[in-house]
Design a protein around this nucleic acid. Structure first.
Lengths: 243, 243
DNA sequence: GGCAGAAATCAAGAAATCATAAAGAGCACT
DNA sequence: AGTGCTCTTTATGATTTCTTGATTTCTGCC
């Protein structure tokens, strides 16, 4: 469901949280110290649970160094009871501050609340239930997972929709096969990113069965694919036109 | 700054919060019971502080009835210490649960944290693309790996883009062929840096097909190439000027 | 003006990457 | 178990890009 990063030097606690969160269907990354945590924060987790008291780089340090790059909610975990500590944590860019020892159900509830909110904020931005997000002649409804081109419905499979969503929601941005694979299959999936190529082909085929004129998904040679904001026509060589 | 709705039947507490929040620049709406709260929630506040124990419609009821319509964060305020109450509040769509009596600075810090997060979530997704770096009439977008000269798109191959990026991001700095080769192909690549020459040629050709007037990439005789901060005109008299 | 070294140009072959097709594996639903 | 759909893998051919070496042009200097 979500990717959660747990950073804590207490092995037993990390194991407990990992178990519980995984049993709820989440993917859990764990780090046993601050440095490792900063590393793993690059994996774009959806939420971070961060212990404050750790040897070496403490939770505050970790938060400081990742906050600018990572926009997900950060939950501090700490035995520090003092009010100033709590305020410090929140002021540094934390989103919640949970006292140790904590109640596991409450922690889980808070995690859910944060994830739910993140999702809410996203869907607010992207349009709610009945809302279609439009990209030129493509329209996507994230809620019903439907897509249309020129108002004709596309019948996309799950993976195809995932890929289309990723590309269309980030118009213009280039994604390598590997990036696409990792984002959709998960960072630890083992498989060949060549399968991405195949899906791209199928998506293109489905789109062009409706609109053969326009090339929506562009190939960036040697790099990957991108959703063309201003799609090129026909057999698609914006390139030639330019050169 | 933000519009905050406070729903609580304790008049003194409401007044206190209103004062504090307003002194921090927020606009504060107040409601003294559940029904009034539901009414005011129509005003699209950015955040709601909601007491649980109120006569008549309690905080849970309020939350239930507005949650579907209001997407902003809801902070529960309650004297109920029990874990199940806290979990209930969070499960109903609340985003935080603060025990009474609370520390005012902490409450304010939490309010800030929630507002900050909301802002973060909104500004983030979708609407990126703004990452064009401009160098005079050249613009480069690292996300989409596109470059334009005088707003006309350049269609560059992978290596060409890499080289252009290296040069343009360090305007004025001279790079030898070997440096360019090493930076882009990797320190352990085996090959002839003469190929750099060829790519430079191609980049120049593509640029001058759009803007034949200006020389962007200068040759530093015996040394290498550099991006001209103040490009020389025409068929390359920049060179003389440089040497 | 002529010379040597450096850079630019050109063309063609080599290498890398992508598109396509086709077949096999996995999965859910009967 | 059988069917149908989706997903994955593999192989092949087509295309683009990169590289290389020969050749020409340019630069700085005598």
């Amino acid at each position: 469901m979500a990717r959660i990063l747990v950073i804590d030097d207490q092995l037993d606690l990390v194991a407990l949280l990992k178990d519980e969160l995984e049993s709820r269907g989440h993917q859990v990354l764990t780090a046993l110290d601050g440095n490792e945590g900063v590393e793993l924060a690059q994996m774009e987790p959806d939420l971070i649970i961060l212990d404050i008291m750790m040897p070496g780089m403490d939770g505050y340090d970790v938060c400081r160094s990742i906050r600018s790059a990572v926009s997900c909610p950060i939950l501090f975990l700490s035995a520090k009871q003092s009010e100033t500590d709590r305020i410090k944590g929140l002021a540094l860019g934390g989103d919640d501050y949970i006292l140790k020892p904590f109640s596991l159900p409450e922690l889980l509830a808070r995690v859910d609340a944060h994830l739910r909110r993140e999702k809410r904020a996203l869907s607010l931005k992207l349009g709610g239930e009945g809302n279609w997000i439009r990209f030129g002649s493509l329209a996507i409804n994230l809620h019903s997972r439907q897509a249309t081109v020129e108002d004709s419905p596309l019948s996309l499979t799950k993976r195809e929709f995932d890929i289309l969503e990723l590309l269309a929601l980030n118009p213009g941005q280039v994604f390598s096969r590997e990036q696409i694979y990792e984002k959709i299959w998960g960072y630890d999936a083992d498989g060949d990113s060549a399968t991405v190529t195949e899906h791209i082909k199928n998506i293109r085929a489905k789109i062009s069965s409706i609109d053969p004129e326009t090339q929506y998904i562009g190939t960036v040679w040697g790099i990957g694919y991108r959703w063309e904001k201003r799609p090129g026509k026909g057999d698609g060589d914006a390139r030639k036109a330019i050169t």
